[in-house]
Design a protein around this nucleic acid. Sequence first.
DNA 1: CCCGGCTTGTGAAGTTCTTCACAAAGATAG
DNA 2: CTATCTTTGTGAAGAACTTCACAAGCCGGG
Lengths: 221, 221
Amino acid sequence: MEGPRVGVLARRISESTVRRLSFYLRILEEAELGGVGTISSEELAERAATTAAQVRKDLSLFGSFGKRGLGYAVRQLATELRDILGLDRSWRVALVGAGRIGSALFEYPGFRRRGFEIVAVLDADPNKQGKCWRGVLVRDVAELEHVLRAERVEIVILAIPAPAAADVSARAVAVGVKGILNFAPMQLRVPAGVAVKDVNMVMELEALSFALTQAGRTPWG
Amino acid sequence: MEGPRVGVLARRISESTVRRLSFYLRILEEAELGGVGTISSEELAERAATTAAQVRKDLSLFGSFGKRGLGYAVRQLATELRDILGLDRSWRVALVGAGRIGSALFEYPGFRRRGFEIVAVLDADPNKQGKCWRGVLVRDVAELEHVLRAERVEIVILAIPAPAAADVSARAVAVGVKGILNFAPMQLRVPAGVAVKDVNMVMELEALSFALTQAGRTPWG
DNA sequence: CCCGGCTTGTGAAGTTCTTCACAAAGATAG
DNA sequence: CTATCTTTGTGAAGAACTTCACAAGCCGGG
């Protein structure tokens, strides 16, 4: 009804834009809960800690969703963004690594709320295998290929130590997984067409350390 | 002995550069363990999934650490990078939120290994308060200011739900904390001079969802 | 001691991302 | 119905980041 979606996507969308789109969506959903019907790029920008021009530019990459003089319809824009981000469906996710981080991720309600369903859990430790986590059996990581296929897994979360990550990643890719969320502190090598996102908490702390160190070294600290 | 450190830092260092520096450091430490004495920008680039020119540019922002015709001395460059990143010391960290994520973070050995010492844990839940985690008492978050001051905390990790994050963040900043690692899915507002890093796992999954959705929509999927 | 091969450090060019600024268009009031 | 006010969408300008390309410097061999 509005601008075309698919055709527009010839241009490459930057990672920062995608990150902001996620952010806008979260803000819109909050606003909708608060009963807000319409929102301007200015308001959206303020809550997302960016500029109004940036908001409009980001959205304009995918179409024309606003009304001049009025702003954006909150509910409609949220729907558009969910559609753009591929969140208008659910994703079948496997969690590899049933240690502390894996277990925290499994219990985290935010994933399911967004349609990411953890349909399989795997671990190399025999003591963890066979346990049942809220209806999901913890399987042997040796069965990875079988489980991924049987459960039609699309995204794999790696919550395992670095040395094991490369192997598991390669095997997952080999059976057709196209998305990996990697918590292991190492760079995964994947063929083109496979998306990897890294979450590296130590690196984030190191960036803080750098910032704090700089502050101490510069006069405007 | 080499180029000056402090003087060079007039120019702003981009976030991506800092991220890569952390990465280089990790690679160098691996190489050192492997007994490698010298490494070229080319090799470093390959392992960090970037380009040789990028590596040299990043490093050149802080000085001249290499030898032409030879490369970089692994051990020496690692030391330089630790110094640049402020990792030649230890940091006193408080963890707010003793839930699943908080507990996983507390147990994660990577933090301590890099000099980030969790010297205080706080939670709002009376059932968790009073417990002892490896020698660290879980305190009431109501005592935040007192604990942060008493323990001389420099960095706070927020592993609490979004609604509580803004309040705790403001109180931490008020007693002089200059660095915050935020796991809550919300944008914190902090005054200039305070560094915030966000870790948002749902957003990372959403970025994967976008990438996978795009792949399906484009011919070169 | 000199020469050829290799690798750094860095201006310049190229690319990508962000901000500016304004025409176009819908809303509202009179 | 017109005038005015608001806000979008978007070329163009500007800023930031990356890649190129090459002079300068170091090493090892003859």
